[in-house]
């Protein structure tokens, strides 16, 4: 089994795919920032933001279902905000009775909880759209353009290049463990050994993985040296942003600012 399925990039020829990665990165982060800036409970703006994401997803052709399904993966974290329903002071809607406990459910609490959940959900969709339509080397270029240190970009780039190699390595380790019946999770089967023993086995695998990685990095370093690497990270000069890119940036930024202003007006 290979782990290439991990790569979330969905090839295509849509206008979204063709947009410069720098524009996409800046506008995606801008969109998420805008979403974060909208106050609690301004539903009309949430609806508009959601419509914006969905229309870009449709334009990109990666599939609305795909994006919505992946966006649901971030949902468990919503638990962190769930208590707000009960603890935010305000108009009481009704109360749950748990045995002898009476837990009030308040309107501002419900409003706050759903606002946070919805804003988070919309933001995740924007990030998914970015990665589904942008190849990782282009994201690296965009990171360079927004002044992420060159060295860090080089490290992250190299990490990406070996991510799949090492994930495959980890899968081989897991398969070897399964074959030797130290299997972690087959329902209904007796688990081998005590928990501490199983943890030690997993730890041994992790140690093994690190050892192989350190040795691999030695080989990579030698290979880089023999191709003339001298410690300097060199990269192609960034292509100039064209007029059309600037127009996209200004237009997108303008709409986002407009939405923030509008939300403040509605909210007041």
């Amino acid at each position: 089994m290979h782990i290439h399925f991990l790569d979330p990039y969905q090839g295509g020829h849509s206008p979204i795919h063709r947009t410069d990665a720098r524009v996409k990165l800046v506008l995606s982060v801008g969109f998420i920032l805008t979403t974060a800036l909208i106050p609690i409970g301004v539903w009309p703006i949430y609806v508009l933001l959601f419509a914006m994401v969905i229309s870009f997803v449709i334009l990109s052709g990666v599939g609305v279902g795909y994006v919505l399904k992946r966006a649901a993966l971030a949902f468990p974290f919503v638990l962190a905000a769930l208590p707000l329903i009960f603890t935010t002071p305000g108009l009481q809607l009704f109360s749950l009775t748990l045995g002898t406990w009476e837990i009030p459910v308040t309107l501002p609490g419900v409003e706050r909880f759903f606002s946070i959940a919805l804003k988070s959900w919309i933001s995740v969709q924007a990030a998914i759209l970015l990665t589904a339509t942008t190849q990782f080397p282009d994201i690296l270029t965009a990171m360079r353009a927004v002044r992420v240190p060159r060295l860090l970009v080089a490290i992250i780039g190299l990490m990406w290049r070996y991510l799949f190699v090492l994930a495959d390595e980890a899968l081989r380790l897991i398969r070897a463990r399964a074959a030797r019946s130290g299997e972690a999770e087959i329902p209904g089967h007796r688990k081998g050994g005590r928990i501490a023993w199983r943890a030690q086995t997993a730890g041994g695998m992790a140690g093994n993985l690190f050892l192989r990685s350190i040795e691999r990095s030695d080989r990579i370093y030698v290979a880089m040296l023999s191709r003339g690497y001298d410690g300097e990270v060199r990269s192609m000069p960034l292509p100039k942003l064209e007029a059309s890119n600037w127009i996209e940036l200004i237009l997108g930024g303008g709409i986002l600012i407009l939405l923030v202003v509008l939300s403040l007006l509605i909210w007041e």
């Binding site: 994930a167 899968l171 380790l173 990095s217 990579i220």
Partner: peptide, 30 residues
């Protein structure tokens, strides 16, 4: 100059290492 290959590969190893798990109890894992 060893920085880039060593840091990059070890970061990938940590990422891959997060796939290694062991059963604890009741379907949860460490």
């Amino acid at each position: 100059e060893r920085q880039v290959p060593l840091m990059g590969v070890l970061a990938a190893a940590i990422f891959a290492g997060q796939m290694l798990n062991f059963a604890v109890a009741g379907g949860t894992s460490g």
